[in-house]
Nucleic acid binder design. Structure first.
Lengths: 370, 370
DNA sequence: CTGAAAGCGCTTACAG
DNA sequence: CTGAAAGCGCTTACAG
């Protein structure tokens, strides 16, 4: 059997209560220095470990933060989840990961909460759930958890929850980022700017895109939803789907609207697909068409034409999220926070030096290819 | 406060013990049907949930399986981890993920065990830890956990533990796979076969490579360790590193040994890098050089020259691992298992129809490029 | 600064 | 089939 407080108490000739105090970081100051040292020495010698269940039962909560993450096979999603986990560790919190997938099928917020509470977390951090987790479900979940005494943080969801929801929330500023991307193209002289975005990117990409056009007094829009080209079947990786979607969507759009001279793509994968698609109809980047991506995946700067894109401030978001969590657990009871982290526009070469005139080459017939 | 057994007992007019039995899947048969129904109805009405800490304290262990996974940003690693998690759920087990990274820094097996036991898992499944977790560390860990009453399963580690280690283990048969890949090339007539592998792939790739050559009575070897080109700095993704490594290694090897007509690559990423590298010195695939990859990543079949490679039997391995775990928890006390899952050779076009003669083109000077 | 005692919510022989 | 009671290992007012 494992060593218990009682065993240490007996050897040290003190009560269990004293040992409990001595071995608790926050209450060890109540114990006389000499006694403290003796107890610690004996605990070490015996190889003592707290029994987390007994501790949690007595205190009323466990010491662990559950990190609910949407683990798709998508590169960016994975990186973000890993970074947030690291940040929690850095903040001195013990964290375990619950893949959202395992909760998704449960359906109701009530059932999801029940499942989460099975591991009796001290707090729950939710990292950008799959897009089919609607905001209302998430909001309900926060309410239920809060009622059961568990604090929730929503990190990097595509929408911030309403102010009334009892949870902190932090996300990247997708709208501003999209606005900056399109503004960048407008400043380079482009007037007919295509948008290749999927439905789950609606909130950020499309709103920002429209906002930038509105600001510049441009009304015509060239939006190409790529959903029709994408199947998010779980056994197929997001990667190849997105590339293929961009490949087809870019060609469709340029064929339909040959006046388009620039593309803002919902992701870098879509962007490289679009580049291939453009090449397939005889258009080159950036001479004929300028391209902006989204995410700044690591290979973006290594492309034949390095990609101008929007960066993901993963470190900042993770660090801030962890700090909010830590503060709440330490007793911070200020009003619920709603924070947005700016996303940088990273200018490389895929937008060239600016639009210098009408496109030199007409859109060719697509070559047979995949 | 939450609903407790006591609350239900009072409303139902029975003792806590009866409620406890009624609400336990395995002991509910001890309760009279009528009483059972009444208790269940009341529990539902009150929204009762077991307190996992109290339960775990009373029973002596919790109901959750900790899944320790090496979460690198590598695609294959991520996929494998996700699949194993799903398989555990499918086997009716509640599983939480502990990123190995959070344990890695602890150093000693004793400390890692202590940290793992903090969440007092019912069992621990370890999925191919990072390569710097030496087998001995892993073996020690299993021993400590076992002594503390926790069963361990080692899934997909590159080496199986020794028979004495108190744990089950299942891995893919990397050695056989490498042997099959090289045999395939030998059968196609190749005699000078290069190997591009990194140190952490040593166990499988190199052993299998040598074994195939030995079987065919060929002694000369062309091994190119790619480690020198790869830096596994945690903030850089494995992806771009591996491609670049293959790019450089292939050129180096062909320059040094121009008689080489085939390459067996440690991963598909290395393989596509190698393809680019070969193109850079004027060699084409498969006409001049045949290539075999490893992993069968989803884009392999979409390359200009679809890649012949080794497939990862992720589903089989995950399902079998989950089944072993489930059986052990159900009381299976047969001898510790050591299982290997075969990996399929997937023949596409990167090895052509066979070697038809000496290479048509000499190796050119490398073009300036990256 | 320390101890005796009650309590956290559940399970499980034991006795009926 | 059911209940009274002890116990899992820890914490925390309360009293000294």
């Amino acid at each position: 059997m494992n060593v218990r407080l009682k065993d240490i108490a007996r050897q040290a000739g003190v009560s269990e209560a004293t040992v409990s105090r001595a071995l608790s970081p926050s209450r060890s100051s109540m114990v006389r220095a000499e006694t403290l040292a003796r107890i610690r020495r004996i605990a070490d010698a015996l190889g003592y470990h707290h029994n987390p269940h007994a501790q949690a039962l007595a205190i009323g909560r466990s010491a662990v933060v559950s990190l609910v993450v949407a683990y798709t096979e998508d590169y960016m999603m994975n990186v973000k989840a890993l970074r947030l986990h690291s940040a929690l560790l850095d903040a001195g919190l013990q964290a375990q990961i619950i893949p959202a997938q395992s909760l998704q099928d449960l359906g109701s917020a009530e059932k999801i909460a029940a499942s989460l509470l099975l591991s009796a977390p001290m707090a729950v951090a939710i990292r950008s759930l799959a897009t089919n987790w609607h905001l209302e479900l998430l909001e309900d979940l926060c309410g239920i958890l809060w009622d059961r005494g568990v604090y929730t943080l929503i990190a990097d969801h595509h929408q911030l929850p309403s102010d009334a929801v009892p949870a902190d929330a932090i996300s990247t500023d997708r709208v501003r980022a999209a606005e900056a991307a399109v503004s960048h193209l407008l400043k380079l002289g482009h007037r007919c700017i295509g948008l290749l975005a999927s439905a789950d990117q609606t909130f950020g990409r499309i709103v920002g895109y429209r906002r930038a056009l509105d600001e510049h007094g441009i009304s015509e829009r060239y939006e190409q939803p790529i959903d029709q080209y994408v199947e998010y079947a779980p056994e197929r990786p997001y990667l190849s789907q997105a590339v293929q979607a961009g490949y087809l969507a870019a060609q469709d759009l340029l064929r339909r609207c040959p006046e388009v001279t620039a593309l803002f793509c919902g992701s870098d994968l879509v962007a490289i697909g679009a580049m291939r698609g453009l090449a397939n109809v005889g258009l080159s980047v950036p001479a004929d068409v300028a391209i902006v991506g989204f995410n700044d995946e690591p290979w973006c700067s290594h492309l034949p034409v390095p990609l101008t894109t929007i960066g993901q401030p993963v470190e900042q978001l993770s660090a801030r999220a962890a700090e909010m969590l830590r503060a709440r657990l330490a007793g911070d009871d200020s009003p619920w926070r709603r924070e947005l982290v700016p996303m940088p526009l990273i200018v490389r070469e895929s937008c060239g030096q600016g639009l210098v005139g009408p496109r030199r080459w007409p859109v060719q017939e697509a070559v047979e290819s995949s």
